[in-house]
Design a protein around this nucleic acid. Sequence first.
DNA 1: AATTAGTTTAACCAGTTGGTCAAAATTAGA
DNA 2: TCTAATTTTGACCAACTGGTTAAACTAATT
Lengths: 204, 204
Amino acid sequence: MTAINKDNTEEKILSAARNVFIHKGMDGARMQEIADEAGINKALLHYYFRSKQKLFEAIFKSVFGKIMPNVMLMVNSDKPIEDKLGAFIENYIDILTINPFLPTFILKEIHRDPEFLAGMIKESGINPQQIITMFKQEMDSGKIRKMDPRDLIINIISLSVFPIAGKPLLSEMFFEKDKANYDEFILKRKVTIKEFILHSILIK
Amino acid sequence: MTAINKDNTEEKILSAARNVFIHKGMDGARMQEIADEAGINKALLHYYFRSKQKLFEAIFKSVFGKIMPNVMLMVNSDKPIEDKLGAFIENYIDILTINPFLPTFILKEIHRDPEFLAGMIKESGINPQQIITMFKQEMDSGKIRKMDPRDLIINIISLSVFPIAGKPLLSEMFFEKDKANYDEFILKRKVTIKEFILHSILIK
DNA sequence: AATTAGTTTAACCAGTTGGTCAAAATTAGA
DNA sequence: TCTAATTTTGACCAACTGGTTAAACTAATT
C-alpha cells in the first residue's frame, strides 16, 4: 500500500456506492452518480473495482453480511425465549429504522439475480437449522405450543421486516395526515410485535 | 375504432409489458424486450402509449388497482372475525402464489417514486379507516384483546405478504434441498397464519 | 376500384452509459 | 533530488436506449 489516499478513496467509493445502490438498485444506479457522490473521477471506480457488477457485488456482500447474522440473535445466549425474541426484534428494528431502504434493496436484488444467493447465505454465517432446533426444544419442553418451527421463524421475521419495507405504502394508508409519526409507530412495535407473538405461542 | 386488430394489439402490449415490468421493474425493463415479447414492432409501443413512463403507469395502476382492493375483504361481509380473516388471507395468498413477483415489484416501485402513491391509493378504493373501525368494534365487544388496530392490520398483511416477497431468500434458507416445496409450505400457511393470529388476539 | 383513415414497420437519431486509455499529478523510495 | 510506481483525471468510444418519422400496409367506405 504505497499511497496514502488509497484506503481513503476506496472508502469514499464504497460509501457512495452503498448509498446509491441501496436507493436505486443495480439497474437504477449510475456509475457517474456514484463518482459524483464520492467526489472523484468516474474512471477511478473502474481503477478500484474494475466494473459496475464487481462494485455492486462488493456492496451487496457487505450489506447482506452485516444484516443477516443478526438473525442468529434468536439463538445466541441462554436467556429465556421471551428475551431472545426481544433481542432479535429490537436489534432488527433499530437497524432497519436507520436503513429503511435495506429490506426492499435486498428483496429487489435477490429477485433480479437469485443464483447469487446460495453462496451468499453460506458466507453469511447464519445457521437456520440451529434456530429451528432451538424452537423445537421450546415446544418439546411445553413452553410454547407445537407448530412448524419454520412457520414461527418466518412469522417473526415478517412482522419485523415488512412494516419497514412497506413504509411508503403503509404510512400513506394509515398515517396520511402525519406520516412522520410512522417511525415512532415502528419503534413502539419493538414491544407490540413481541407481545403479539408471545400471546400466540406461549402456553399458560 | 376502424381496425379489427386495435384491441388485440393493445392487449398484447399490456400483457407483455405487465410481464416484463413486474419481473424487471421500470429501471430494468427495456422497450425492445416488451415489443419482442408482444411480437410487434417497438414503434407500436409508442403509437399506443406514447412513452415508457406512460406505459409503465398504465401497468402499475392496473396491478395496484387489482391487488389492493382485496384488503377490503377484511371488512366486507358480516361474518365473524375468524371468517373475515380467513377470507382475506386465503385470497391474498392465492393471488400472490400465482404472481410471486408482485409484492417486490410494488415495493420496488413505491420506493423509486413515492410521490405517485397518494393518488394511487385514493383511486384504489380502499378505506383503511373502515378496517380500523371494524377491529375496534371487535375489541370493544370483548371478542379480541385491545391493541392498536393499525398494529393488528399491519401484522396480518405482513404475515401474508412477506413470506412470498422473500421467497427466493426464505426458500434457500429453510428449504435448501427441496425449494420446490416452498409453494406447498406457503399454501399450508393459509391455515397456520390464521391460527397464529387468532391464538394471539382471541379472548377465550 | 378508388379514396381515406388507421395500423404497422424498418430505418434512423440523439442522448446516455459502462468502460478505456494515455497523459498528468502525486507519492514513496533510492 | 531524481526516479519509479501508483493514483487521478479528462477525453474518448462503442453499445445501448427511448423515441421519431416517413413510407408501406390493411381495411372499411364510397
